[in-house]
């Protein structure tokens, strides 16, 4: 039973969202078709054609590659971790879940900066290699593509682990026991039962890692260098340094469309299986 429309409830939040979310997006959508904010010159597609310039196309492709690598990296570490945590005894499970959650609630900049202590010229890795005599000069580890992908994995991995744990927690353990009794070994159980049953969580986790990784601005800004900047950095530069707001807007619209395409593909492939975001929060 749903009660009839009540505008008293719906109006305030949606008025706010219209002014501070929909309207701003509309403004950049319109800006993206102008000659750098000069309304008098009519509309143009040049800001969208500019993305085909090899200089910017390279950044866009790099962003996609980094996001895919970050997703695979998080899955590689996150899937076994989630499997271990989900099937641990209750006490250990609580402790491990908390250990995954603490970084999640810790300031993002702090977590990314923490890698300076490992990758920096005076960081742990270089100090060790210099001390052991393997190298004579510190290696350039910070401000590289590797550092950016590592930072993306580090920053987003809780988003991979938590949905997979949620999916694995719903598994009926008697199925796994039945398979074991019928002679399946651990690896078979994992491959034939755990993996398919956990797939809604794996897909959700991959989306939750891919999206923020693709649009990341902080990680390449801090851990990256000139050759590892992502589309988020280009957008920031267009608005803050170059001041070509129209091109910055077209890049933002392209990024937004890419993300929305990803999300809708996810929603289409299994609406009933997918869990709502609210369950993870």
């Amino acid at each position: 039973m749903k009660i009839r429309e009540s505008s008293a409830l719906i109006l305030p939040p949606y008025f706010f969202l219209t002014v501070f979310f929909i309207l701003p997006v509309l403004i950049i959508l319109i800006l993206s078709f102008t000659h750098n904010r000069d309304w008098s010159q009519g509309i143009t597609l040049k800001n969208y054609l500019l993305i085909l310039d090899p200089l910017y196309l390279k950044v866009l492709i790099r962003s996609l590659i980094f996001a895919v690598l970050a997703t695979l990296g998080s899955l590689l570490i996150g899937l076994p971790m989630a499997y271990y945590i989900s099937f641990s005894n209750p006490k250990r499970k609580i402790l491990l879940t908390l250990l995954v959650l603490v970084p999640f609630w810790t300031n993002f900049l702090v977590r990314i900066f923490a890698w300076f202590t490992i990758l920096g010229r005076q960081g742990l890795i270089n100090s060790f290699l210099l001390w052991s005599g393997i190298i004579n000069e510190p290696l350039q580890l910070l401000h590289t593509s590797g550092a950016v992908v590592l930072g993306l994995v580090y920053g987003e991995i809780p988003f991979m682990i938590l949905p997979i744990i949620a999916a694995m927690d719903r598994m009926d353990i008697s199925l796994l026991e039945a398979a074991t009794n019928l002679g399946a070994n651990r690896f078979m159980v994992f491959k034939k039962l755990v993996l398919p049953l956990a797939s809604p969580g794996i897909i959700a986790g991959s989306i939750f890692v891919f999206i923020p990784a693709l649009g990341s601005f902080v990680v390449p800004d801090i851990l990256g260098g000139r050759d590892s900047f992502m589309i988020g950095n280009t957008i920031k530069n267009q608005f803050m340094t170059v001041r070509d707001w129209s091109f910055g807007s077209s890049l933002s619209i392209i990024l937004m469309v890419l993300v929305l395409l990803g999300v809708s593909a996810y929603l289409r492939q299994g609406r009933d299986q997918s869990m709502t975001l609210g369950e993870y929060l």
């Binding site: 923020p212 990341s216 920031k236 608005f239 910055g248 807007s249 933002s252 990024l255 937004m256």
Partner: peptide, 8 residues
């Protein structure tokens, strides 16, 4: 939506 898009 990426926060950088929302921000700009």
């Amino acid at each position: 939506i990426p926060d950088v898009v929302q921000a700009v």
